[in-house]
């Protein structure tokens, strides 16, 4: 019942996008997100769609996975769209009592919805093409400079790695507990909100107990192998920037300039 959740949604592959240095991918994703906020025309988003399409094509991720990642977003999209349509001043399309919809509102709603969708699309390409371990490694490197101001970069990355690694374990455990308690007649599907919340207690208590037990065992196992974070720690797999990373930065720079340019271009001509 819980196996449908797609967490740690990495799709292994051998494409250029997959092989890019995680630091490149993280930085470019951040740049892409920032650029998205400059895009405010339909033409801009069309260009965006072309870029995204190219990246999807190269990375070989099926479109259906991207659609799946956007799906949970629709509540947000509808919510922001409604707020925008009815809360923006301008030329009125129709009016019901004091609530009025405006052309400007509709336009803004479309822009905002597209922005949200493209935002999630971009970030899900990052998680689809980068394994969680490599991703945290990249984050650790990028946080490196902040160690000077006492940001525990390595510890943060290690915590993320461990958390990601335990997600499937905990899902499996939840499934087992739900079955065991259903076998004793527990009912998770009927009753009001209070009853349902109460029905979760027999799942959550043992789940927490076992999570603590696992954490304890893991800590012990790490200590037994003399684990410690910090300065003297070396890595088996070093990250190296390569030609393709330089290429990616170049292409991204051109694309982002274009995206931002499209906003100011009509005014300049």
């Amino acid at each position: 019942m819980l196996t449908d959740i797609t967490l740690g949604q990495y799709l292994p592959g051998e494409t250029v996008i997959h092989k890019l240095d995680p630091r490149t991918k993280i930085l470019l994703t951040i740049a892409y997100i920032m650029a998205l906020f400059f895009v405010n025309t339909i033409a801009g988003f069309a260009l965006c769609a072309v870029f995204m399409g190219c990246i999807l094509k190269i990375s070989g991720i099926p479109l259906k996975f991207i659609i799946k990642s956007i799906k949970p977003l629709w509540i947000f999209v509808i919510f922001t769209a409604i707020i925008n349509i009815f809360m923006t001043d301008g030329k009125i399309v129709f009016q019901i009592w004091v609530i009025k919809a405006t052309w400007e509102g509709i336009y803004l709603a479309v822009i905002m919805s597209l922005r949200l969708i493209f935002l999630v699309m971009g970030t899900s390409i990052l998680t689809y093409t980068t394994s969680p371990i490599v991703l945290t490694d990249g984050i650790e490197h990028l946080l490196g400079p902040f160690r000077k101001i006492k940001v525990p970069a390595h510890e943060i990355a290690m915590m993320m790695t461990i958390a990601i690694r335990f997600i499937p374990t905990i899902i499996e455990e939840t499934d087992k507990l739900m079955k065991a308690q259903s076998a004793r007649g527990a009912d998770f599907e009927s009753g009001n909100l209070m009853a349902r919340a109460k029905a979760m207690v027999p799942i959550l208590v043992p789940l927490f107990v076992s999570a603590f037990r696992r954490a304890d065992e893991l800590a012990l196992a790490m200590e037994c192998r003399c684990y410690h974070g910090g300065d003297q720690r070396t890595k088996m797999k070093q990250l190296h920037m390569q030609g393709r990373d330089t290429g990616a930065f170049f292409i991204a720079a051109v694309s982002i300039t274009l995206l931002i340019g499209i906003r100011y271009l009509p005014g300049l001509i």
Binding site: K176, Q181, R184, G185, D187, P206
Partner: peptide, 19 residues
């Protein structure tokens, strides 16, 4: 539900379900 009361199921490591 009634079937589950009639067929008692003891899973592996049942002590993990105590709450």
């Amino acid at each position: 539900r009634e079937l589950r009361f009639k067929v008692g199921m003891v899973f592996q490591y049942p002590e993990h379900q105590l709450f």
